[in-house]
Simulated scan of single mutants.
Amino acid sequence: MKAVVLAAGKGTRLRPLTDDKPKGMVEVADKPLLTHCFEQLAEMDADEFVVVVGYRKEDIISHYGDEFRGVPITYTHQREQKGLAHALLTVEEHVDDDFMLMLGDNVFRANLGDVVSRQREERADAAFLVEEVPYEEASRYGVCDTNKYGEITNVIEKPEEPPTNLVMTGFYTFTPAIFHACHLVQPSNRGEYEISEAIDLLIESGRTIDAIRMDGWRIDVGYPEDRDEAERRLTGAAEVEAESASGDEEKPVEAADGE
């Protein structure tokens, strides 16, 4: 399954970290954000990365080249940042089957594989990793409504008054049907082509979209303090893993019966 990564943004809210680099190249725990994305996607056997670049695209292309750890990379160019649906259309000619979509400014330590597994079951036309957040934070994201079967019935992009606190996390799987929906999207009040509207068009056409609850954590790195929090969590997780490995090495081997 191919993996599409959206990395065209300027990251204006991340300044001064993005004064001299694109958002995807901001480092967290000594690695660019995009490297964290690629590592996660490679673990799920992505067979190609299709990366949407824009602002300072040369920085990304020169850093990664045409492959990452043996996985080929194709780049597409979003010349103007007009929303996620607009960005997604730049990859249409490169994707002809089910695919993963990750926003390149997220750091995950979560059950992404559950979303991919659900897509491969062929019972859903799309699957999204979702999480519950405090209501006061929900307006930063695409907010979801679900039915009793765990299917998404509506998505509202960054509402001023969120109807729920269940939000999309930035990891999705889709069939190519999403491209047709993106072509039908009209600019929002923000002047952007919102992926939430494309998703609603899929739902209205009878497509099934499953919500997979997040098990783990993720940080949407939108502000410098988000970068700091992601770094703190990654560093803490690494220390726990190191301590666990050290404990296993020091654990004495029990003698077999009779010895």
Score class of each variant (00 low, 15 high):
Val5Tyr: 08
Val5Trp: 05
Val5Leu: 15
Lys10Met: 14
Arg13Trp: 04
Pro16Val: 10
Pro16Phe: 07
Lys21Glu: 14
Pro22Asp: 13
Asp30Glu: 15
Pro32Gly: 06
Leu41Ile: 11
Leu41Gln: 13
Met44Trp: 06
Asp47Pro: 04
Glu48Tyr: 04
Lys57Trp: 11
Asp59Trp: 10
Asp59Cys: 13
Asp59Leu: 14
Tyr64Pro: 07
Tyr64Ser: 12
Pro72Glu: 10
Thr76Asn: 03
Gln81Glu: 14
Val91Glu: 03
Asp97Arg: 13
Asp98Thr: 09
Met100Phe: 11
Asn106Asp: 00
Leu112Val: 05
Val116Gly: 00
Val116Asp: 01
Glu121Thr: 12
Glu122Asp: 13
Asp125Pro: 05
Ala126Ser: 12
Phe128His: 12
Leu129Trp: 08
Val130Tyr: 04
Val133Pro: 01
Tyr135Ala: 04
Ala138Gln: 01
Ala138Asn: 01
Cys144Phe: 07
Lys148His: 02
Asn154Asp: 05
Val155Ser: 02
Glu160Lys: 12
Asn165Pro: 03
Val167Gln: 07
Ala177Ile: 13
Cys182Pro: 09
Leu184Val: 05
Leu184Gly: 02
Ile195Arg: 10
Ser196Trp: 08
Asp200Cys: 14
Ile203Glu: 08
Glu204Arg: 13
Arg213Asn: 10
Asp215Asn: 14
Asp215Glu: 15
Tyr223Cys: 00
Tyr223Asn: 00
Pro224Ile: 05
Glu231Asn: 02
Arg233Cys: 01
Thr235Gly: 01
Gly236Ile: 01
Gly236Asn: 10
Glu239Leu: 05
Glu241Cys: 04
Ser244Pro: 00
Ala245Ile: 03
Gly258Thr: 11
